[in-house]
Design a protein around this nucleic acid. Sequence first.
DNA 1: ATAGGAATTCTTGGATCCGAATGGAGGATG
DNA 2: CATCCTCCATTCGGATCCAAGAATTCCTAT
Lengths: 262, 262
Amino acid sequence: MIVPTLTTKADEVARTLEDEIVSGAVAPGQVLRQEGVCARFGVSRTPVREALQRLEALGLVTALPNRGARVRSISSAELREAFMIRAELESLATAQAAQRITAEQLARLDAAEERFAALTLEVRAQMRSGEPNTSELVVGWMAANHAFHDVIYEAAALPRVEMLAKSARRTFIGEHIWSARGELDELFARNDMQHRAIREALAAQSPDGARTLAREHVLSSGRLMEAALDLAAAKARPPDWLATHPQDHVWQTVGDSQGAER
Amino acid sequence: MIVPTLTTKADEVARTLEDEIVSGAVAPGQVLRQEGVCARFGVSRTPVREALQRLEALGLVTALPNRGARVRSISSAELREAFMIRAELESLATAQAAQRITAEQLARLDAAEERFAALTLEVRAQMRSGEPNTSELVVGWMAANHAFHDVIYEAAALPRVEMLAKSARRTFIGEHIWSARGELDELFARNDMQHRAIREALAAQSPDGARTLAREHVLSSGRLMEAALDLAAAKARPPDWLATHPQDHVWQTVGDSQGAER
DNA sequence: ATAGGAATTCTTGGATCCGAATGGAGGATG
DNA sequence: CATCCTCCATTCGGATCCAAGAATTCCTAT
């Protein structure tokens, strides 16, 4: 039963590539050969090119003219900026949600919070047991985190804000973040507490309180994420993907002397 | 330019179409036939399709599958949301700029303010003289307005915020806004005063003051823009482009009992 | 006469083909 | 031996061609 083309090939390719980029499956700085992509997906170059155009419009890749599309790597400044943007947009959405949330949505928010709390406990327990790498649990935790915020976005009824905040949310590449998550036990505990506080502000229909709590929530997440990145960078292993693009778009833009020659 | 192909055809088409959409030259709700576009630009359908993909990713058109791309019209709720987003992002950028602005940038801000004030006087004088429609003067006034804010964006050094704010700035279609500008003399005077206040806060390097002033500036602009739209809608002339797409994406969503605080 | 269905036509989506530009490799020359 | 020029291979941008889907129209049957 082939339901007639509810989605187009270019859309499929774009969505899959987008997921792969934000999940870190494809490394930042890597160039995407059109031939390779269309060989992977079994399609021609035309939908691949359209998908790359779309990804470039979304800011996920930078298209060098006549030289291919390279996955944008993100600097620490850009990471901070993304969290600033998320803080503004999420505080706006949460303040708006405080004025409009329904009882049914509040119940769903509680359910999401509950699942998030359970997964947080599970993640923390597993972290302390020394086992560092169960990716599906981390993915589930992130999904529960997003589900909590998605209820707030739904209550806010600001679709553009939701879209932009989610876009900002996915600017930081996923996998590299979690390389140092062992040192960040406090991130999980604090996140859960902040979620509960936001839930209370929403239940009390207090826009100002929800606004400041949401802002502080995102900004503290950003600070901890930055600390995680610094820890990961200090782990001394130079990332292998750094060798693929020598000078441009490095993560830590350390003041690498001045120009090499001259 | 003799420099070989610094820009691609699809880029040219996308940029021109984008300008035409945001300037209102092409009406909202209109469908863009690929053949017509490629006939207009003298190119094949391939770059046109890539340009449409990019515009769809930017949210300027909605692509129905197998049925063409239609220019997105904007509802009053979306307009309010766009101003909310601009208020958040611009207050963030202005607060950041207050901490980083240099003397040279402040001087350029003064120059932009001066030109903006002069053009404001000119526009108001022309409006009171009864002559309603000198589009190039209005375009110049908007450009001066944007130039003022662009200096702030440059000082803020938040490129992503700048891009998003400009994207939100261009979501409202230009031409229809100005159909009722005769009734909005206060908009111009207030804008100029607010610009001066923001300039003072930036010179004093006061992030909090700059933040609240920028927020109030954008929100008051949004309120006045909404009033202008209501006035234009009340002018009883049913907009011609409304006939092209009967039920979907209307401007005034009639069920909207919320909001509209004056 | 009206409603339903089938065929035609128009438009979009996807594939293939061709020209152009970039980058590297190799040779020639100072 | 180094540097510059030239040629070639790889890859991207644009055009054309073919297939598929949707809308309109026309025909038929009730």
